[in-house]
Computed example of a mutant assay.
Amino acid sequence: MTATSNPFDAARDLADAPRVGGRQRPKDAATLILTRRGASGAEVLMGRRAPGHVFMASKWVFPGGRIERADHAAAAANDLPPAEIRRLAREITLRRARALALAAVRETFEETGLLLAEPAPTASVAGPWREFRAVGALPDLAALSYIARAVTPPGRTRRFDARFFMADASALLHPEPTAGSGELDEIAWLPLDKARAVDVPAITRFVLGEVAERLAAPDRPLPFVRMVRGRHVIEHLN
Rank of each mutant, 00 (worst) to 15 (best):
L116T: 06
R12Q: 14
T112S: 04
A17H: 09
M46Y: 04
V61Q: 02
A39H: 11
L80H: 01
L141A: 03
D16S: 12
E183P: 00
G230Q: 06
A120H: 06
S170Q: 10
L116N: 10
R96T: 12
D79A: 13
A76S: 12
L144D: 10
L14T: 05
G209Q: 09
A217C: 06
D71Q: 05
R87Q: 13
V233N: 03
P154R: 13
F132R: 08
L45W: 04
P201I: 12
K194Q: 09
E43Y: 05
F224I: 14
T35C: 14
L141D: 06
T35V: 15
L34M: 12
T152W: 00
V211N: 02
L144E: 10
A99G: 10
I92D: 05
R106K: 11
A10Y: 09
G38M: 11
K27Q: 15
V198S: 09
E84Q: 15
R133M: 06
T2L: 14
I187L: 10
V151N: 13
M56S: 13
E235L: 04
G38K: 08
D140Y: 01
L173F: 00
E235Y: 01
R96H: 14
V44L: 02
V44Q: 04
V233F: 08
K27A: 11
H174E: 14
R87T: 03
P121F: 05
A30G: 06
A162I: 11
F62E: 00
E68T: 11
R130W: 07
H72G: 13
F224G: 01
A126F: 09
A143Q: 09
